[in-house]
């Protein structure tokens, strides 16, 4: 009788994937691809790069499925792998980056009113303010406010004590608030 995989728990699905058929992995991917993709995209802000990284993350997860122990939720485990992978990628990219004197500058043509409007909208959005935050603040605040994870889950992901996680989220909120007030974006928000 065919198994209705949508009702199988994550852990059972992992066991089935390891012991029976690797194709069960696509159901796991279906459950978490959007979460992984969205976390990566908020960290790198480039869809193509995010797609490549998300694929690499799932391949890594597949190779290490046997190392998963249900002491944490599968989502916690997979987000930990995701954030570590993106941080490693950034580190490597930084090392390989082109020296500043070798960069060819492209002089931009005059902006059309439409482009100006789009840029203004983008500059005012919370996304652009988030982008400016360092990873240590950006990752916890996005996981908490956008992905709906609890303080405890974030603490398990970044392997830091609960108090530190709370502190970083509080600091991140304050940093966002300061940048809104100081850059005059407050007017845009009607404050």
């Amino acid at each position: 009788m065919p198994v209705d995989v949508s009702k199988v728990s994550d852990f059972d699905l992992i066991q089935m994937c390891i012991n029976e058929d690797m194709n069960y992995f696509s159901e796991l991917m279906r459950r978490y691809k959007n979460l992984v993709f969205s976390v990566i995209l908020r960290m790198v802000n480039d869809k193509e790069e995010a797609n490549d990284l998300a694929q690499e993350v799932f391949i890594k997860v597949y190779k290490n499925l046997h190392k998963y122990y249900p002491e944490f939720k599968f989502s916690t485990w997979i987000i930990r792998i995701t954030t570590n992978h993106v941080i490693d990628f950034r580190r490597k990219k930084k090392q390989e980056s082109v020296p500043i004197e070798d960069v060819e500058y492209e002089l931009s043509s005059e902006e059309s009113p439409e482009a100006q409007y789009i840029r203004k909208e983008r500059d005012h959005s919370i996304n652009s303010l988030l982008e400016a935050l360092p990873d240590m603040y950006k990752i916890p605040i996005v996981l908490y406010h956008k992905e709906g994870l609890s303080y405890q889950e974030i603490s398990d992901i970044i392997k830091e004590p609960l108090s530190k996680v709370k502190n970083r989220i509080f600091r991140a909120r304050k940093m966002l608030k300061e940048s809104i007030i100081n850059t005059g974006v407050g007017e845009y928000y009607g404050v």
Binding site: V36, I126, K146, R173, I180
Partner: peptide, 19 residues
């Protein structure tokens, strides 16, 4: 008011889907 706006911005932030 700024905090409240930040909270609402997070809530209405685009839901990102993988390809």
């Amino acid at each position: 008011m700024v905090y409240d706006k930040i909270l609402r911005e997070f809530e209405t932030m685009e839901v990102i889907s993988a390809p």
